[in-house]
């Protein structure tokens, strides 16, 4: 391949087009998780996939400017902590956590959408971190 980073022009163009769509789809799945199938985990994975796609298409340096390793870790643990605190809030006050009365409404599920968002942040960045660590390991080896 030539000196420029990433893959060919076609891949880059397609990625540029689909990247935003995938992220929006992921966010949609996160936010509607308490009503329809989906939820924090699946949405988080989809959001991460868009970043991985970006990384494959444009080379890792471009992505790293936006989302480096330590920031990923911070987000991941932050998401987990928020999730934990919401769970503990439910422990203290049981009724409000789960007690949504209106079914099938967007705001009818108490704290569950918040949980979903926290989980999606945690899962997304965690998964990206895993992918990233493996990539770095391989690069390190090739460097030697």
């Amino acid at each position: 391949m030539s000196n420029e980073k990433g893959m060919s022009l076609i891949v880059k163009t397609v990625t540029r087009l689909t990247f935003g769509l995938i992220i929006i789809y992921g966010i949609y799945i996160v936010l509607r998780g308490h009503i329809s199938p989906g939820g924090g985990f699946a949405g988080g994975v989809i959001i991460t996939l868009s970043f991985i796609l970006l990384m494959l298409a444009f080379g890792k340096d471009n992505v790293l400017k936006k989302l480096n390793q330590s920031r990923c870790l911070t987000f991941s643990s932050l998401g987990a902590l928020i999730f934990l605190f919401i769970a503990t809030a439910g422990f203290i006050n049981k009724q409000k956590a789960v007690g949504g009365k209106e079914h099938f409404a967007i705001f009818g599920a108490g704290l569950i959408p918040l949980c979903d968002i926290a989980v999606s942040v945690m899962v997304g960045t965690g998964l990206f971190l895993m992918f990233f660590a493996l990539v770095l390991l391989v690069e390190e080896k090739e460097g030697k």
Binding site: M130, V138, E140, K144
Partner: peptide, 20 residues
């Protein structure tokens, strides 16, 4: 599946290190 993912990541990173 999630647990499997975690185990596989650990195993693969171990395998890469072992190869090193």
């Amino acid at each position: 599946i999630v647990i499997g993912l975690a185990i596989i990541v650990v195993l693969i990173s171990l395998a890469i290190r072992i190869y090193e």
